[in-house]
Design a protein around this nucleic acid. Structure first.
Lengths: 139, 139
DNA sequence: TCTTTCCTTAGACAGAGTCTAAGCTAGGAT
DNA sequence: ATCCTAGCTTAGACTCTGTCTAAGGAAAGA
């Protein structure tokens, strides 16, 4: 049983076969898939599932706070089932693969008061970029 | 004379009236415009300018390293003529206004080796979020 | 089993950005 | 000053992501 499915049930969310397949696809991912990638993988288990359902379901999971929506490249959004809010992301500029990472300190501490422009600053997220082992030039 | 135009000339970049209008529009902005906003403003000075030229020109400025592409909302990209490459961004969750900010240290140093997953990590950008003085609840 | 409400579906639509092919022009060569 | 050519600009078609619509289907309580 998927842990994300368990969390979603607590919201009195009607559990349909389509939603279960999407949740399990997300949960099993070691990378952060785009909506189209989730659709492809869901289709392997349920060929008749529709694009609209995948998009609707992902948006509902985000609204319930059980999935985080990521947007790095300006093209397609990616979905992160990790609810842990103090992690950041490492992206490959070659293939776009995205990993969760943790820093040694809270980035909020790195923004001095005189750089805050009077804002109440509540959140800081870091996007690290580089090349993954597969995309790095062979040596 | 726009400072961005001066910088672009150094790249042996053919200077056309269209490119000049786009560069001057970007340079004069106190906010970070989207491509469509730049097109609208460029059209006020040069009504026959085309969408393709605006998009091509912005992409070339980014490739030359003289403009930074930002992508916060997952809808449209925004363009920042600030050449200072070690700045980050502070965004108001209320009204969306974006400020350039500087941190006290390089965030790359805060990602330990065992969190790098074999990547060659070259860049780190931080997005700070909060409420600006106008959007913060009155007390 | 019935009923109601909500979910799913195919396909049309929308917004952002890219591509194409034809004509035009900046800037060096003459 | 004029010519040439590489490279720029243009309109509009196209792609890619994502949303909406209207009709039929199914979960879950009565």
């Amino acid at each position: 049983m998927s842990d994300l499915v368990t969390r979603l049930r607590r919201h009195q969310w009607r559990m349909t076969p389509q939603r279960r397949v999407i949740a399990e696809t997300l949960e099993g991912a070691h990378v952060h898939y785009t909506a189209e990638e989730i659709l492809d993988r869901a289709c392997e288990r349920m060929p008749e599932i529709s694009r609209a359902t995948v998009y609707n379901t992902l948006n509902e999971m985000v609204a319930l706070g059980e999935v985080v929506e990521l947007n790095f490249d300006g093209r397609s959004k990616r979905y992160d089932p990790n609810v842990d809010h103090d992690h950041h992301h490492l992206i490959c500029d070659g293939c776009g693969v995205t990993k969760d990472v943790h820093t040694v300190a809270d980035p909020l501490e790195w923004l001095p008061g005189d750089e805050r422009h009077g804002f109440t600053v509540t959140e800081a997220s870091i996007t690290f970029r580089g090349l993954c082992p597969e995309c790095a030039p062979a040596r």
